[in-house]
């Protein structure tokens, strides 16, 4: 299928990208990896008037260790993230998650910033960003992840705002991402990430609501000394997931509990 016609402009810097976004107005879209956008355009479910191609902005493709922070450029590809020695050392959970996004071809193109800005409920990075209190840096400001994901496919980004990097805390303790799906390259039916850090647990859930979810109740229960199995019972507290072809709301809630238990246990090296 063939997308509707659009204007195309390459930006060589973030400033230029922002200027171009302003110039083309609200119907402009940023083109990074394109793996969410281009299929939508081919189905003509998205018909942007202009695409601002940021693939040439080299400074957005980076992974930097910065004290207790790990800065991942918006244009960093999944493949780069999962192969990165720095990521493996400083935030191995991110490397693990990156290796399970899409397939090889998708990972060669898809980017950190693209997944964050697209804000699909089934996106994996948003879960990690939220649960670790990451910051989303744009050309205009720094937005804490908890304020960034507003709704399904909806973020705090303004029309001429471009995600430039995501700043995660360093965390290299026990960790696990359990991504439950039918086919290996599918999006998560439900995903659960567990990371031990600063003496506590961070637990994040994917695809159980319009935005990623941090399982506060589970974290608190663990803090109080509950075993994984007991704490995981709280994973579905307050959840109201939408059902879809692959899972009913009840099943998603059940999976949230089971996978939370598994994520914690596997992070700790059990099972």
């Amino acid at each position: 299928m063939i997308p509707a016609a659009f204007e195309y402009a390459r930006a060589s810097s973030v400033e230029e990208a922002s200027k171009l976004l302003k110039k083309f107005g609200e119907d402009a879209k940023v083109l990074a990896g394109g793996h969410s956008l281009i299929p939508l355009m081919r189905l003509r479910l998205a018909q942007p008037a202009a695409l601002i191609d940021i693939n040439g902005i080299k400074e957005l493709d980076h992974i930097k260790e910065d004290g207790q922070k790990l800065r991942v450029g918006a244009l960093t590809r999944h493949v780069t993230i999962h192969n990165s020695a720095v990521v493996k050392a400083k935030l191995p959970l991110l490397a693990e998650i990156a290796s399970e996004v899409g397939d090889n071809q998708v990972r060669n193109m898809g980017t950190m910033g693209g997944v964050i800005a697209h804000a699909d409920a089934a996106g994996d990075y948003p879960t990690l960003a939220l649960m670790l209190d990451a910051d989303i840096v744009t050309n205009q400001r720094t937005i804490p992840a908890r304020d960034f994901f507003k709704d399904l496919f909806t973020t705090a980004l303004g029309p001429d705002e471009v995600v430039t990097e995501v700043v995660f805390p360093v965390a290299n303790g026990p960790h696990k991402y359990v991504k439950f799906r039918r086919r290996l390259f599918d999006w998560a039916i439900v995903g659960v990430a567990a990371q031990k850090m600063n003496g506590g647990w961070r637990i994040g859930l994917t695809n159980v609501g319009p935005t990623p979810v941090r399982a506060n109740a589970v974290e608190e229960a663990l803090q109080k000394g509950a075993k994984a199995e007991e704490a995981a019972q709280h994973a579905s507290d307050g959840l109201d997931p939408a059902g879809d072809l692959r899972a009913s709301p009840e099943y998603k809630k059940h999976l949230a509990r089971v996978l939370t238990k598994r994520a914690i246990n596997q992070a700790e090296g059990h099972q």
């Binding site: 189905l43 086919r183 290996l184 599918d186 072809l245």
Partner: peptide, 25 residues
């Protein structure tokens, strides 16, 4: 192949939703 039972709309219209297996399954 799943259609909406009321409207008759096809819900498995792409290979995203129509779950043909890969080598891994």
């Amino acid at each position: 192949v799943v259609y909406d039972e009321d409207s008759g709309q096809l819900k498995t219209g792409t290979l995203i939703d129509y779950s043909m297996p890969t080598a891994n399954e």
